[in-house]
């Protein structure tokens, strides 16, 4: 579909340099619900990590702590060497380096596709408009939306909107991309076009953390798959082992429910 998609899948140039280090993260919601019960996880540069789990397991909440969209009460999270604290400066610095794609796309409906993509580079990176637009057009071409650059999000299909959302995050040239169930709100026939873009992104060496229910994607693209349930990290494994020979009983049960 796009020029950067190659035959090779999986086996990315995974380094040993950690990008995100989460240690014993605990979080309670305002109503007292204990949603994360001491989760530790390390994301290495260049790897694709898939987080699976039943709904309510805390997987979305967990990855949303990586860019401080969700505060947490115990433990530490380090992103690119900076510890997430209450310091707004630190948080903004981290958010500049962490891209995020949401289940509901969350494109800005009052701005055109091109303005959606150039907004953050212009206002956060302080790029001149011409440079931001040039980069944005390249990215839109990469995700196959170039012809729609001057339309508004409301005029695009769900799959196209999600691809624009990916381009919008990439425009900030992040060090790591977080995907929070990026295909769950899409009609079935549009899931593939989004997964294809994510696959191409993985092949280009991007560090990615994906919360998804797409088993095929996890099998083919992930370097590691983890299972979360009830606020705990249950199992962490290679995709081959995870799907064909899981260690934990809980994982077997989960897989029997979704496969």
């Amino acid at each position: 579909m796009t020029q950067f998609q190659t035959e090779q899948s999986s086996a990315h140039q995974m380094g040993t340099e950690p990008v995100i280090v989460a240690r014993d993260v605990e979080k309670w919601y305002d109503n007292g619900f204990h949603v994360l019960k001491g989760v530790s996880m390390t994301v290495y540069k260049g790897e694709v990590l898939v987080v699976m789990g039943p709904s309510g397991s805390g997987k979305s909440t967990f990855i949303r702590t990586f860019n401080a969209l969700e505060p947490y009460q115990k433990g530490t999270i380090e992103v690119d060497g900076t510890t997430i604290s209450h310091d707004l400066k630190d948080i903004e610095a981290i958010r500049r380096e962490v891209g995020m794609v949401f289940q509901q796309f969350n494109l800005f409906p009052h701005l055109t596709v091109l303005q959606n993509v150039t907004l953050a580079p212009i206002w956060v990176r302080r790029w001149p408009k011409s440079k931001a637009q040039e980069v944005a057009m390249q990215l839109l071409e990469r995700v196959g939306i170039l012809e729609q650059a001057h339309k508004f999000p409301g005029q695009l299909s769900g799959g196209q909107q999600q691809r624009v959302a990916i381009a919008r995050s990439l425009a900030m040239q992040p060090k790591v991309m977080l995907f929070d169930e990026p295909t769950s709100a899409l009609d079935p026939e549009m899931v593939r076009e989004v997964l294809d873009v994510m696959r191409g992104l993985a092949d280009s060496g991007m560090t990615m953390v994906c919360v998804t229910h797409e088993v095929g994607f996890a099998r083919e693209v992930a370097d590691r798959v983890v299972l979360m349930d009830g606020g705990y990290l249950v199992e962490e494994n290679t995709p081959q082992e995870f799907f064909s020979n899981p260690r934990e009983e809980r994982t077997q049960k989960f897989l029997s429910q979704i496969l």
Binding site: L69, G99, F102, N106, F108, A120, V124, S169, M172
Partner: peptide, 11 residues
């Protein structure tokens, strides 16, 4: 989600 999307971009 609009707020979250904007914040996640570093605005």
């Amino acid at each position: 989600g609009q707020n979250e999307a904007a914040m996640s971009l570093g605005l």
